[in-house]
Amino acid sequence: MSTYLIPSREDDTTMGPVDSPGRRLRIARQSRGLTQERVAQELHLHPTMIEALEHEDYKSLPEPVFVAGYVRKYARLVGLAPEPLVAAYGAAPARVRTDTAVRAGHRRTGVSHLTVGLVGLGILLLVGVLTFLWRQYQRPDLGLETTAAAEVGREAAVSDMLDKIPEPELSAFLTDLEDLLADQETGQSPEPGSDPETAQPQPPTTDGTTAAVGTQPTGVAQDTAATIAGKSGAIEVSFNGPCWADVRDSEQKHKLFGKMEKGDHYVLEGKPPHAFILGNAAAVQVTVRGKPLDLSTVSRGNVARFTLDADGRIR
């Protein structure tokens, strides 16, 4: 028993560092005059376990949970603060096993995060592609000309017509026009029902020919445009206020789609019959060959739904 009370020098050399937890426990035990057997009896442990604790023989010690418990009890018995000792034992190699288990868990977590990231990226890409396709689908191939474009087209058609008129006919027409102007100058009133534009007083010019040439294309253009409209059965749609419109031709291609604003004017092309859905029928005027259509017959609650056939009749 005395061997435990008075440690030999050999014991000191095998104990490791001065402030190691095992050594501190041993010194505290000896200072209280306790033997290993006595401590083992108090703690209900085998004396070899106490020896292993003091020598920090981790191979002989059980799992960290047990070691922590033993150290706590031992420290309390010998009047030491248990937690620093438990921490000192916990930092020792005995915890390697638990750490490995935890690391394995973390590795799995890392893989799981990578999977989540990849799947998330894939979903984002898919959403992007779907949005692009949807927008492509939603943009209608209207094939429309705006008012300005229509004007440009009309002027081009007029100049073509002028080029096609033979020179004698043109000069004859100019002569007639000069006569007409001469009549106006003499105070003769224009004939009723005559074209108002041609009846308008022309500004006095020094060169009558130039003036005549300047006025001529308008009349021709009007006639030509009317002829073209008459031949093709052109449908014009004017908006006097905001209106939602959906107009499709016989091939189900969108000719007009979306919200139109006040002042918009469109000339429809495409293969008749055209199917119309107009959200605010009161704000729309549809003209077929210059004749306005009465939309009140096809409106229900200010929404007009109708089909306009090739002859300009509502079905």
């Binding site: 703690l43 209900h44 949970v65 047990f66 922590a68 418990g69 033993y70 706590r72």
Partner: peptide
């Protein structure tokens, strides 16, 4: 529990 069973009893962390 230690007194009643005579075995070492430890509280887990």
């Amino acid at each position: 529990l230690e007194e009643e069973t005579g075995l070492p009893v430890l509280i887990a962390d």
